Computed example of a mutant assay.
Amino acid sequence: MNQTTHRLALDDPQALDEAVRVLAAGDLVAVPTETVYGLCGDATNGRAVAGIFDAKGRPSFNPLICHVASLAMAQRLAVFSPEALILAERFWPGPLTLVLPVRAGAGLHPLVVAGLPTVALRMPRGPLPEIAGRMDRPIAAPSANRSGRVSPTTAEHVLRTLDGRIALVLDGGPTAHGLESTIVGFDADGPVLLRPGPVVAADLSEVLGRAVGERKEGSALSAPGQLSSHYAPHGTVRLDAERPLSGECWIGFGPDPAEITDAAAATNLSPRGDLREAAAHLFAALSRFDGPDFPRIAVAPIPREGLGVAINDRLKRAAAAR
């Protein structure tokens, strides 16, 4: 695929009109949400959905998240249980994706659900709900990067791997959370956390009045973002490092060790040890060291609590064997 990728500031008066025009023609647009930039296509248009997989180099068995304009639109696409409805009403718009039984006649292209009987739905903050509302159809939108690479939190990150592969990028500056949405599914026992994210398990349990289950390691793919190797920069990643070895790049958290001077290059997710700040900076840090000049990356330990669960999940996938 080789085309000219145009870039428009999100506050340009023509930005949303142009995005709707491009999407209605079956082409692709990168749009910022509060989590990361999404690679958007009409979820009912086979050419657009196939274009997403082609642009990303994404395995066809990995389903896509559909973004909606409203709860009413979501209910036309999926069957909501009472608990799913509670979560949607509490956390939408926001960084929560719900995996629900797809409704008969939903009109989604089969590639969106990747052969599963469920569909992943989200109503994000940002321009996507308005775009979906103007089109009166859901927007399929995985992260706007080549599959398995670092998720994009700026328009520059999008263009690094997708320039020439998509028609348009709406530049809204850095995203707020910098970490993809929490994903919750439902089984016979109730809600299950399929992917940790900005809405943490304690938030979900408080709203539902009961504990949320966890996905069993090694179970079949049921939602986006569950591949073992994902979010990977070019070089190898060493986790829970107390200090950088000579020649390694360093991604710190909290006070840096004295040996940081041995690092080839260094950044810190949050010198004060704030997990929210670290989550917002994670993909930008991985993206900074995503290239052949940075063959080895060491990452400081991140507490495995609250948002740290989601951060460690992404780091584990970044470090997985490829």
Rank of each mutant, 00 (worst) to 15 (best):
A211G: 14
M135S: 06
R134H: 06
E217A: 15
T161N: 11
S229W: 13
K56Q: 13
W250V: 01
Y37H: 04
L162G: 04
A264L: 15
R296V: 14
C249K: 04
A300K: 09
V113G: 00
R90W: 02
P95N: 12
L108H: 07
P138S: 12
R160V: 02
A69R: 01
D54V: 05
F53V: 08
L116R: 12
A223F: 00
P101W: 10
A300E: 08
L286Q: 09
L282N: 06
L307C: 00
G126D: 05
A43S: 13
V309E: 15
A72M: 04
L239E: 08
M135N: 06
R125H: 08
A298T: 03
A120V: 08
N45V: 04
R149A: 06
R296F: 03
F289G: 02
L116P: 05
I52M: 13
L23F: 06
A176T: 10
A132T: 05
E206G: 15
L100M: 15
A284D: 14
L194W: 04
A280R: 15
R7G: 00
S147V: 02
R122I: 09
G218E: 11
L221C: 14
S270V: 08
G218Q: 10
A300S: 13
A202R: 13
P127C: 02
G126S: 12
V212G: 10
P191T: 10
L100C: 14
S205C: 04
I311Q: 02
L10R: 09
E242C: 06
G172Q: 02
V212N: 07
M1V: 11
A232R: 15
L227T: 07
L77I: 13
E259K: 08
C249I: 01
P191H: 09
A319K: 12
G306R: 13
T236Y: 04
G57W: 10
R314D: 08
A55R: 09
D293C: 01
R47L: 06
T33H: 05
G115W: 10
D42W: 08
G148K: 12
V49C: 11
G133Y: 09
G197E: 03
A176M: 03
P63K: 05
P303G: 04
V237M: 07
D12H: 15
E242S: 15
A202C: 01
I166Q: 05
